[in-house]
Amino acid sequence: MMLAEKQTMDLIYQRPESLSDAITHYCPGCTHGIAHRLVAEVIDEMGLREKTIGVAPVGCSVFAYNYFNTDYVEAAHGRAPAMATGIKRVLPDRTVYTYQGDGDLASIGMAEIMHVAARGENITVIFINNAIYGMTGGQMAPTTLPGMRTTSSPNGRDVELSGYPIRMSEMLATMDGAGYIVRRSLHNPANIRKAKKAIRLAFETQEHGLGFSMVELLSSCPTNWKVTPNEALTFIADHMVPVFPLDDFKVHPAIANLKV
């Protein structure tokens, strides 16, 4: 009787094929897991798994290559866009994307990210902006908010001493080589759904050969922000979104009209 009932059940939720079954090292409440899943779902839905090469950064997602069930390489700190360029140029028919945090992309890798966009390199970047260096234990990042306490801005980020947060999406949208640049957030289900659609459109941009694409994802770091996971999500909505507005900064007309 029980067996018969089981057989009629539909499987409605499972791990995407593009994710491996490894247990991640991410902290409880961290949104990396959500971002990984969204990327993997999009790769699955677009049927790209067997032609995708990911480029992992240095930072908390340094082990991304263990968590995705696609080919992967692990770059030096900040150099993922350069490595992705090398891969894409010798294998132009593959899908190539980088997965980078704010320290990796907006600090040490600033030159590489700006130039990969300027060249209109046909790759996709998933940019995790959680306003802090997670892996090294909570130091100030280029996207740390004014007044935000970190281990290297213990009294709060003083803009007189250490400047202002960098808005990467706005800056990259000025590049002629960019085809799709948007910022989304992972702080609640509605925004997560919007983030997934943006990731889909970013990969569509690449598959249609429309140039550089990037989705910036506002993300949480409860461990280093020293708050609970729930408080971290509220912090994104209340404090990060006002500094980093959720918007489409550049969308190629062909992508704007795309139905997915």
Partner: peptide
């Protein structure tokens, strides 16, 4: 710096 990392990727 970028050049050698492009080589690395390729």
């Amino acid at each position: 710096v970028a050049a050698i990392n492009m080589v690395y990727g390729a």
